[in-house]
């Protein structure tokens, strides 16, 4: 594991950004501001992956979540119909339930963090420079079934979208 001064500075800077932005996601009263802070969180997460030499995962993080953030904002604006945008992400009165859920999450996080053998997980050998090939081989050998199932599902969704789009055209033409 890299322990140079730059890596340490980068880690603490990114960690502070992630935690700060994630807190702002919760506390912002305007839903769009919340989602924009969420984007900051995601990009900072990508930075964290980069500092671990996982460039592929970092690119996936940006690619997948940047698009998702845009869609989330659009949905947020379309679904929430308030005249004042500053009242779109308010707190509710479920303090007990919220406290219980938070305590449960923290407790589970602590348990799993305690159970993980961190020292053994840090690999002694250096991180390979090209992670893409290794990920690709793993995806098509050890994890081939989940990977293919997910790929098939996405393809079906894609084809389904096209079919739905075409269907509409047929109906409008029938009316004519």
């Amino acid at each position: 594991m890299e322990t140079s001064i730059y890596a340490v500075v980068a880690f603490y800077g990114l960690a502070a950004t992630i935690l700060g932005a994630a807190t702002m996601v919760v506390f912002m009263r305007n839903i769009v501001h919340s989602v924009l802070f969420l984007a900051v969180t995601f990009v900072a997460m990508a930075g964290l992956f980069l500092s671990l030499d996982a460039d592929f995962i970092a690119a996936v993080q940006v690619l997948v979540y940047a698009g998702a953030v845009c869609i989330m904002i659009v949905l947020g604006i379309m679904v929430i119909q308030r005249t004042n945008m500053n009242e779109t992400n308010l707190f509710n009165k479920q303090i007990l339930a919220g406290a219980g859920l938070t305590a449960l999450t923290v407790a589970f996080g602590a348990i799993f963090a305690g159970r993980t053998a961190w020292v053994e997980m840090v690999a002694a050998d250096a991180v390979p420079a090209n992670t893409v090939e290794a990920i690709g081989e793993l995806l098509l050998s050890k994890y081939v079934i989940p990977f293919e199932v997910a790929a098939l599902l996405l393809l079906v969704a894609l084809v389904g979208a096209i079919v739905l789009a075409r269907d509409e055209e047929v109906e409008t033409n029938a009316d004519n």
């Binding site: 460039d55 690119a59 996936v60 940006v62 690619l63 940047a66 698009g67 420079a129 090209n130």
Partner: peptide
């Protein structure tokens, strides 16, 4: 090493 992927990821940010 992942140039193409990086390009697509960054380009999608401008939306």
């Amino acid at each position: 090493n992942i140039g193409v992927f990086y390009l697509l990821a960054i380009a999608s940010l401008s939306t």
